[in-house]
Amino acid sequence: MAAVMETIALTRHFGGLRAVDGVDFRLTQGQIHALIGPNGAGKTTFVSLLSGRIPVQSGQILLEGKEITHLPAHARVHKGVAYTFQITSVYPRLSVFDNVALAAQSRSPKDVAAQVAEALAHVGLTGMEALLAGTLSYGHQRLLELAMGLALRPRVLILDEPTQGLAAGEIEGFKRLVRSLVPQTTVLLIEHNMELVMDLADQITVLNFGQILASGTPAQIHGNAAVQDAYLGGHHAAH
């Protein structure tokens, strides 16, 4: 299947720390792809390079075969790469409507209200348009953040730890929501919740010390000895 996004020998060091070190990575069109690995493995740095928040040191990033390595972040958004923040980063002093409208009008200035309504309906926040985003509950703010990502109608949606801090019931809803996005949108997901990853992902890539340790389907990763040792091992056996 076609790769929507690809990296070739992607590298970024911070001083002596090799946060991302020569990563060759393929994101297949229409899949849910999870990026896992221990804390400090370079996951957030890697997706920051993809989205353009951090400049690339060496290597290449391709979007549908075209190089975007040095494209500024805002231009990548228009090419279809959307990023939702790890720490909820809605505009707390603006209304829910304005938050989503900012995303919608960035893509197309036409029918902003309809686009907003659609995105809010998708995440289940219909009826909350007039509230200030800062007054929403934490779970709703995460959904709003997701709605902003959806309103951009991205080809690749990067979700950085989207379920962090959510209650168990909310996670079920979130799973359904992400499933409904594919195959129109390709989802790249950083996630710590292994149960969720095993359940949701079509493909998993494990990062460790800035390098790819393993890559494959959930079943393959589950059976991979190196991954068991480095990361899953004791943690998973405990369940």
Binding site: P72, H74, A82, Y83, F85, Y91, L102, L152
Partner: peptide, 9 residues
């Protein structure tokens, strides 16, 4: 920073 990630320069 957030606005940049919504596609605004």
């Amino acid at each position: 920073d957030r606005s940049r990630m919504l596609g605004y320069n």
